[in-house]
Amino acid sequence: MIALILRRGALSLVTLFLLASFIFFATEVLPGDALDVSLSADEIANMPAEVMARRKAELGLDRPILERYWGFLGGLLRFDLGRTIITRAPVGEIIAMPLRNSVALAGVTLLLALPVALAIAMAAAQAKGRAVDNAVSGAAIIGYSIPEFVTGLLLIAVFAVWWPLFPATITASTNDPLGVLLAAAPLAIATTIIGSVAYLGRILRVGLIEVMAADFVERLHLSGIPRWRIIWLHALPAAMIPGLSAAALYAASLVSGVVVVEMVFAYPGIGAELVRAVTRREVHVVQAIALAAAICVVLFNLLADLGIAALDPRTRR
């Protein structure tokens, strides 16, 4: 078990290292350096050469690429994410609170969505091929096809405009305690949950149907073991394994969804920071947000892998 954790952890670190390299090269090398990227074509054309050179020197961009790359990686190890190009504010401070808020939104979503998806999937798998199952499958594919921002808008239209139960957008601010923030965001949470339940429910249903057709379920059935026992003690833990793999794969999509939903509801998370950073072409902020999100996803994947190892003795070697 410990060997497994170490092995998975090492692989995650390799992935993160590759990712950091990819981010650096895709934003600071291939298209030009950070300053080129942050300026528009007009600005570059109009800027006198010596001003340009001075600014590059200020930002350390006159050093060779490899040196900058090592500097970038070294900075990451010291949790120094650099400063913004325009205001020279430390990036870490800019994204810390929004990141906290986004992680909270994603966490609440997963905590609520997994059991709901599981319950729905069980109901559908039990009634495979019958009306309940068809309705669930149909609802899942619809839920999965509607973009988060549309779901969010529909919720606003129904529950904030026509039937004003909740506020349309969130009034809480970035530094409010999490409880206040989440309490102010019921529609946002509902939106991310709907998408997650549709995705996870679909995959859990397939997993459950597969397990219910497994040989060991048939053997138990032919031994006269009661059905509820077969489902809860034998089939469900087995079906949770593909469910956890799916949840791990879904983690990245969830972050994307969270970014969009935050914009719909003006939730103070990394979504707004990201959009602001991309439109202002603040390279270092985009880098930091991408890395932070990737670390969250990798950590979640690690957790899911450990969950799978706990459920499936065959993976523990």
């Binding site: 590759l18 981010i23 990245a252 969830l254 972050v255 990201l274 991309v278 991408a290 990737a294 996803v297």
Partner: peptide, 13 residues
């Protein structure tokens, strides 16, 4: 690596 980066962030990069 792709699985670790949320798609929207990937495009943002």
């Amino acid at each position: 690596m792709k699985l670790a980066v949320p798609t929207i962030l990937f495009v943002a990069i």
